[in-house]
């Protein structure tokens, strides 16, 4: 029988890699969105692991909700990306300084 800890290592690595990508990627907005997808995937996998360990159906429903929220977030995020590209002809995060933040 496979040790359940191995699954946790995979999901933690998925989340951490997505986090790392969000931090180091300071150029392309779409790549940042892709890394956020990776983080969502790690979290959903974590929920599935717990559902499998404890036989909890609630955890599976949480994973389902995470999938739905991911889709909603991506739809709005990509709309914003297209809007930025339409206004400024680039999606470079470092150059988006109109608010002088």
């Amino acid at each position: 029988m496979l040790n359940m800890h191995a699954y946790f290592i995979v999901s933690s690595l998925l989340f951490a890699l997505g986090f790392f990508g969000v931090i180091i990627n300071r150029k392309n907005l779409i790549s940042i969105l892709l890394c956020i997808e990776l983080m969502f995937l790690g979290v959903a996998t974590n929920f599935i692991i717990y559902a499998s360990i404890y036989g909890a159906v609630s955890a599976k429903i949480m994973a389902l909700m995470i999938i739905v929220v991911t889709v909603a977030e991506t739809a709005v995020g990509l709309a914003i990306v297209i809007l930025i590209h339409k206004q400024q002809q680039h999606i470079d995060v470092t150059k988006l300084t109109r608010l002088k933040g």
Binding site: H5, F8, S12, L13, A16, F19, I53
Partner: peptide
Amino acid sequence: TSILAIMFIIIASTQKLRHA
């Protein structure tokens, strides 16, 4: 990020786990 990942793994490893 490595500290984060190691933290997750340590937290998960301290529990007794098996398939339901």
